[in-house]
Design a binder for these strands. Structure first.
Lengths: 136, 136
DNA sequence: GCAAGTGTATTAGTGTATTAGTACAGCATG
DNA sequence: CATGCTGTACTAATACACTAATACACTTGC
C-alpha cells in the first residue's frame, strides 16, 4: 500500500493517511480482512511519529473502516454497512449540499456537476472490478 | 437575510456565515448588486465581533462572491463566471471525489449518491426560480 | 465640513490542533 | 518463557485557528 505524504501541503498528515486509506478501501485495493502496515512500519518509512499513524488508524476504526487489535495488528473491517439507509443519507447530505452550492457558485450547469460525481464513482468501481470483486 | 449562528457547533462562526451567504446567493435569494447587512449590523444582531463578520465577507470577496467597498458597504458581485471550464472542474473535483469515497464507504449505491446530489441541486434551482430568475 | 455610517488593519488573547517523545500492555513466534 | 513485534495512553512542545479589542480611513448625506 503506497502512501504519498506531504507534510507541507497544509492538510494534516493523519488526515492524508485517512483519506488515502479510505480511497484504497473504497476502490477495493484493500479488502475486508487485509492487513495494514503497522503504525511503526509506516512511521519509519515516512519518517514521522508512530502516534500520528495511530491517530489515523483510530479515526478510521471509529468510522468502522478498520479494526485494530492490540498486539495483533490493524485490518480492514468486515463489511457491516450496518446503518439505516436514512442515517447514511443524513450523513452524506452535507457533502451533497456542499458540492451543489460550490458548483452552482462556479456557474457550472447541474448536469456538469452530476457528471463529475459520476466520473469519480466510476473511477472507484473500475478499480474495484480490476481487483477481482464481482459487484459487491 | 436571516443568519443562524451557533457558536457551540464546532464550525467556526465566520465559516457558518460564509456557507449561509453562499447558499443564499446560489439559491438566488441574493442577486448581483444586492447589499448585505454591514459587518457592524450583523455583529450587533449576533453579539459577535465585527471582525468575525468581516473575515467571512473578505473570504467571500476572495472567492468572487461579494464585493466590498471601504466606507460604502458590501454587495453581491456581478456574475463573472470568468474561469476556464477546465479550471472550474479542477476546483470542484476534490468535492466530487470526497462524496464518492464517503458514499461508497457507507455502502450506498452509486445511483443513490448521484440522486442525493441531484436533490440538492434541484432544491437550489427551485428556490432560484421562485425568486423570479428565469434560467440564468 | 461634520456626523454617522461603512470596511480595514493591527494587535492580542485564548483555545485547540497537530505532532512527537516516552512508557506501557498485550500477542506471537522462537 | 523470552524476545520482538503489535496497538495504546499519557504528556508535552509548538504552531495555528479563532475571536475580540481598538484605532484607522473612507463614503455618504445632512
Amino acid at each position: 500500500m503506497l502512501l504519498h505524504l506531504n507534510p507541507a501541503s497544509g492538510v494534516p498528515i493523519y488526515l492524508q493517511i485517512e483519506n488515502q486509506v479510505k480511497h484504497y478501501v473504497a476502490a477495493g485495493a484493500l479488502g475486508p480482512g487485509d492487513a495494514l502496515p503497522s503504525v511503526r512500519k509506516v512511521a519509519a518509512d515516512m519518517r514521522i511519529n508512530p502516534n500520528t499513524v495511530a491517530r489515523a488508524y483510530q479515526n478510521l476504526e471509529r468510522d468502522g473502516i478498520l479494526r485494530s487489535v492490540p498486539g495483533g495488528g490493524t485490518y480492514v473491517a468486515e463489511n457491516p454497512g450496518g446503518l439505516l439507509k436514512s442515517e447514511k443519507i443524513r450523513r452524506l447530505r452535507p457533502y451533497a449540499r456542499q458540492i451543489a452550492v460550490e458548483g452552482t457558485q462556479l456557474r457550472l450547469e447541474p448536469q456538469e456537476i452530476v457528471n463529475l460525481v459520476e466520473q469519480e464513482l466510476e473511477s472507484l468501481e473500475v478499480a474495484d472490478e480490476r481487483v477481482g470483486n464481482s459487484h459487491r
